[in-house]
Amino acid sequence: MKTLNDVAVLAGVSKSTASRALARPELVAPATLQRVVAAAQQLGFVPNRAAQGLARGRTGIIALVLPTISNVFFVPIVAGAQEAAQTAGLQVTININPLTNPEDIARYQRLSQEVDGILLVAPHTADEVLASLNSRVPMVMIDRELAGFESVSVDSASAFAELMVGLVENGHQHIAYVGGPENSWQNAQRIAKMSATAASCAAKLEILGPYPPSLEDGFAIAESVRETGVSVVIPYARDLALGMHIKLRDSEQRAGKDSCTSGDELEVVGYPTQPMVQVDGLLIGETAFGLLERRIAGSQDAPSVLRLPATVLWT
């Protein structure tokens, strides 16, 4: 196996110069860099990125901290971050931490000593807890905002408001919003935006919840939502929508109604036959990693607060 010393000898430079050329090419004269790269290619030498990182005081690893692995919303975010990190020559480690108690905070602090940066998904953690985190490395929040912190989120509130306007234009005047988990930052943003939109459209908006965004909870609350007398319901997440649809369709079939033609059917937004809000999770992960990579490289710019658009799909 060829070594860095073999590359240096063939290129006619010192071992330290060869190392610098392969790790920090901007610090080496173009002619020297060309000789070192040519020698490495001729010998089939592949630099050890981990060793290079340790030499610069880095691990080559970033952490993606998630509150749970049960929420499918996080899957494309993870994929987007991993793909971007791989392109940059870094590895992503997944860490499950809801940040709900002192031990969780202690685990987070230990993690921050073992990685180059952290992508933090903490949608339900209290602001004061997040503000108290003493991260030793750069950190970017995903899908929530907090003053003084870098973040990437989705403007789902505006999409939900757009959805409401369209439903009102289609004849719905009494609408329910089935809210997500307690303390959810996105849930609070949506409620504020939808309430303002309902007032401007002269529509009645029922705020229900909070509820966990699960199929089981959608199934459990479906009948109570029907009893509110609304004509359409906008759930916080698609799993809630699917659970409600299954329960309502089952109830109608048991009652001998045709769920496709029943005039008093409660419409559930987010199920494939109804409009839905689409979020590009891959883009969220890629964008968040881009901000983190910039910080790891030493950027001292003011924290960026990015809101990516969500799309309303009318079926």
Results as ranks from 00 to 15, higher is better:
Leu130Asn: 03
Ser132Ala: 15
Ser132Gly: 14
Ser132Thr: 10
Ser132His: 10
Ser132Ile: 07
Leu133Gly: 02
Leu133His: 01
Asn134Glu: 15
Arg136Gln: 15
Pro138Trp: 07
Pro138Lys: 04
Met139Ala: 13
Val140Met: 03
Met141Trp: 09
Met141Arg: 13
Ile142Phe: 08
Arg144Ile: 02
Arg144Phe: 02
Glu145Leu: 06
Glu145Met: 10
Leu146Gly: 07
Leu146Lys: 09
Glu150Arg: 03
Glu150Cys: 09
Ser151Thr: 13
Val152Asp: 10
Ser153Arg: 13
Ser153Phe: 10
Val154Pro: 07
Asp155Asn: 14
Asp155Tyr: 05
Asp155Gly: 12
Ser156Cys: 14
Ser156Asn: 15
Ser158Tyr: 05
Ala159Pro: 06
Phe160Gln: 03
Phe160Leu: 08
Ala161Asp: 02
Glu162Ile: 04
Glu162His: 11
Leu163Asn: 02
Leu163Trp: 03
Leu163His: 01
Met164Gly: 02
Met164Ile: 08
Met164Asp: 00
Val165Asp: 10
Leu167Pro: 06
Val168Ser: 12
Val168Met: 07
Glu169Val: 11
Asn170Glu: 15
Gly171Asp: 02
Gly171Arg: 05
Gly171His: 06
His172Gly: 06
His172Ile: 11
Gln173Glu: 14
Gln173Leu: 12
Ile175Gly: 02
Ile175Gln: 08
Ile175Arg: 07
Ile175Ser: 01
Tyr177Ile: 08
Tyr177Ala: 05
Val178Ile: 13
Gly179Ala: 14
Gly180Trp: 00
Gly180Thr: 04
Pro181Met: 06
Pro181Cys: 09
Asn183Ala: 13
Ser184Pro: 01
Trp185Lys: 12
Gln186Ser: 14
Gln186Gly: 11
Gln186Val: 11
Asn187His: 02
Gln189Ala: 06
Gln189Thr: 09
Gln189Phe: 00
Arg190Pro: 01
Ile191Ala: 05
Ala192Tyr: 01
Met194Lys: 11
Ser195Phe: 00
Ser195Pro: 03
Ala196Asn: 08
Ala199Ser: 15
Ala199Lys: 15
Ser200Tyr: 01
Ala202His: 13
Ala203Glu: 02
Leu205Cys: 05
Glu206Phe: 08
Ile207Arg: 01
Leu208Glu: 11
Leu208Asp: 04
Pro210Arg: 01
Pro210Gln: 08
Pro210Tyr: 00
Pro210Ala: 08
Pro210His: 06
Tyr211Asp: 00
Pro212Phe: 05
Leu215Lys: 14
Glu216Pro: 05
Glu216Phe: 07
Asp217Arg: 14
Gly218Trp: 01
Ala220Gln: 13
Ala220Asn: 13
Ile221Arg: 13
Ala222Pro: 06
Ala222Phe: 05
Ser224Gly: 10
Arg226Thr: 09
Glu227Asp: 12
Thr228Gly: 03
Gly229Ser: 11
Gly229Asn: 11
Val230Met: 05
Ser231Met: 06
Val233Gly: 02
Val233Gln: 03
Pro235Tyr: 01
Ala237Phe: 04
Arg238Gln: 15
Arg238Glu: 15
Arg238His: 13
Asp239Ile: 00
Leu240Ala: 05
Leu240His: 09
Ala241Val: 04
Leu242Met: 15
Gly243Lys: 08
Gly243Thr: 04
